[in-house]
């Protein structure tokens, strides 16, 4: 084995510090949310208990967290479903050249890089001018789609780039229709990636703040609810809520990665 150079060790230390920078604060609030009843917002930890985690579900402490969680969940699932449909269809189309492909491609990219506050403001103004009240499942849904579809679409392009068209041609030669080819050949092959994309899309939606902020209407999604709490909740209950929702995200990511790995293994056999 090649001897490791000095630069390896220096960069390894740098990398370690970076990971600490990324995760340190997060684990700090995990720890602080496990304090005893007399806990405060800062170190040192005062006691140890699950008191604050329980307090999250007490309405008077942090407001109606459960309802906003449900909203975010439903919205996230809807966004995943529609993002996947939209981007799979577009991904299929983009395997062939067609007029206007470039325009749509740049339109998609621009949706990603337009400052988020503009999307929110724009949709808000449209609803205002049309006289329709904004709502998390109408205007909020649209705002989320502008954020998730580009990601789903770009990953989909990458997947179809590596996709071997021979399988499909074989199916078509044997007389399969377009629909049959898709469901019997293409879909099973891209399924692991779809799970990955679905998960990524879900977390993007579940944690989205800026694009939703001006168009969620009367009822808040979870990130908006938490944002509201930062001004009036000054107990570790805030950290406890943060801990719970972060662990929820972690769990989803872990499940998806496991599913992804299992499915791609199955395909190699």
């Amino acid at each position: 084995m090649q001897k490791r150079s000095l630069s390896f060790y220096l960069l390894a230390i740098f990398f370690g510090l970076f990971v600490l920078f990324l995760y340190g604060p997060m684990f700090a609030i995990f720890a602080l949310s496990l304090q005893g009843e007399e806990g405060t917002l800062t170190f040192p930890m005062r006691g140890f208990s699950f008191y604050w985690l329980g307090q999250v579900f007490q309405e008077q402490r942090v407001g109606s967290f459960v309802e906003s969680f449900q909203r975010s969940l439903i919205l996230g699932l809807a966004v995943v479903l529609f993002s996947l449909i939209v981007s799979v269809l577009a991904g299929l189309a983009f395997r062939n050249r067609f007029k206007g492909a470039n325009t749509l491609f740049y339109l998609t990219i621009s949706s990603l890089i337009v400052p988020s506050v503009l999307v929110s403001l724009g949709i808000g103004i449209v609803f205002q001018v049309l006289g329709i009240p904004t709502n998390w499942f109408t205007s909020g849904f649209g705002a989320h789609m502008t954020w998730t579809v580009p990601f789903a679409f770009l990953i989909m392009l990458g997947i179809f780039n590596r996709f071997n068209p021979a399988y499909e041609e074989a199916a078509k030669d044997m007389g399969a229709s377009d629909g049959q080819t898709f469901w019997a050949v293409v879909f099973p092959l891209i399924l692991p990636s779809l799970i990955g994309i679905g998960l990524l899309t879900f977390t993007l939606s579940y944690d989205e703040f800026t694009r939703t902020s001006l168009v969620s209407g009367q009822d808040n999604t979870l990130p908006l609810e938490i944002f509201g709490m930062t001004t009036n909740v000054t107990s570790p209950a805030l950290y406890a809520l943060g801990t719970l929702t972060t662990l929820f995200s972690f769990a989803l990511i872990a499940i998806a990665l496991t599913a992804f790995q299992a499915l791609s293994k199955r395909q190699q056999q």
């Binding site: 977390t203 979870l222 990511i253």
Partner: peptide, 9 residues
């Protein structure tokens, strides 16, 4: 993939 708000807090 986790909440920006929580990461700030």
């Amino acid at each position: 993939w986790t909440s920006n708000i929580i990461r700030m807090i």
